[in-house]
Design a binder for these strands. Structure first.
Ligand SMILES: [Zn+2]
Ligand SMILES: [Zn+2]
Ligand SMILES: [Zn+2]
Ligand SMILES: [Zn+2]
Lengths: 135, 135
DNA sequence: TCAGGAATGTTATGTTATAACATTTCACTC
DNA sequence: GAGTGAAATGTTATAACATAACATTCCTGA
C-alpha cells in the first residue's frame, strides 16, 4: 500500500477498496454496502460514501459520473483524472491517460478563457471482446 | 422550431424546453417540475423525464452527468455530443464542439479497439468573467 | 495521561430516476 | 365521420443515489 503519505487506510476503507476491486465492473455505493453487510456487518451508507471520498482523494478509486458508480484506479498514485472507456455490453472499463486528448482539451478550454479544475471524460461503446463475439 | 422532422413538440415538451432555457445554468429535473407546477400545474416527475428524453433525442437539450442537470443546446440540430465547460463559481456552461478534441479522443479510443456510442466530456473550472472579478 | 483532531456511528432526510399499468390524444384509414 | 392502433400522457408507487447533523470512539503526539 502506497499509503506512506500519512493517510490512514483504516479497516472500513480497506474493505471498501477490496469490494470495489472485487467487482470487475463499476459498482454503486449501495452495492458496495450490501456486500459489506452480507457477512454480518451493519454499516450505513455514510460510511461507504466517506470511504469512497477518501479513496478518490488518494487516487485509488474513480467515480464514473455517467453511471453513478465507482471503479478501482488502474494507475494508482496521486489524485488524477483519466479517460474512461465503458463497454455497454459487458460493463468493463478501461482507463486511459492520453496526452493528446489532454492537450487538445486544454487548448480548447483555454481558448475560451476557462481554467480547468477537474475533468469528466467517459466514453460509452463496445470493447474489442464484445465486438468480436456479438456482431 | 426545427421540428419539421416528424417529431411532435407537444405542450409539456415545449414547457420543459422553455423552462430549461429560462435557467441560465443547468437545472435539475425536479427544479423544472417545481417551476411547471408553480403556476398551478400538477405534473409528475415522469412527465418531466419523458419530455427531457425527447428533447435530448432531438438535440435540443443536453444532460450534464456530473451535475445531474440539464441545459439547452447551444447548436440545436441532430442529436449530438459536445464538450461542456462548467464554471464552478457562476454555474454558467459553455458548449464546445471541438474537432481536435474529438479527433484525439477517437484515435485514443480506437487504438484500444473500442467503438464509440456516446461521449460525456465535462470540464469544471472557472469562466473568464469569474476569474476577472474574484482573483 | 490527557487533550484535540480524525474517523466512525447513528438517525433522519433530501434528491434523482424508473417501473408498471391505466387513460387519453392524434394521425390515418376505411 | 367512426374505427383503430401507436404515441403520448397520467397516476401511483418505489428504487436508487447522496448528504445533513450530531454523538461517540479512536488514534496520535505533547
Ligand atoms: Zn486512475
Ligand atoms: Zn465488452
Ligand atoms: Zn449541443
Ligand atoms: Zn463563472
Amino acid at each position: 500500500m502506497c499509503l506512506t503519505r500519512k493517510s490512514r487506510l483504516t479497516d472500513i476503507r480497506k474493505q471498501v477498496l477490496k469490494t470495489v476491486w472485487s467487482s470487475h465492473t463499476p459498482i454503486g455505493a449501495y452495492d458496495i454496502l450490501s456486500r459489506l453487510n452480507a457477512r454480518g456487518g451493519k454499516a450505513a451508507p455514510m460510511a461507504v460514501y466517506r470511504a469512497l471520498d477518501f479513496l478518490m482523494e488518494n487516487g485509488l478509486v474513480h467515480r464514473i459520473a455517467s453511471l453513478n458508480a465507482f471503479v478501482g484506479c488502474a494507475h494508482p498514485g496521486e489524485h488524477h483524472a483519466g479517460q474512461f472507456l465503458i463497454c455497454r455490453d459487458c460493463g468493463n472499463v478501461a482507463e486511459l491517460d492520453n496526452a493528446d486528448v489532454k492537450r487538445a482539451l486544454a487548448k480548447a478550454v483555454t481558448a475560451r478563457g476557462f481554467t480547468i479544475d477537474s475533468e469528466v471524460i467517459e466514453i460509452s461503446g463496445r470493447c474489442p471482446h464484445c465486438r468480436e463475439h456479438t456482431p
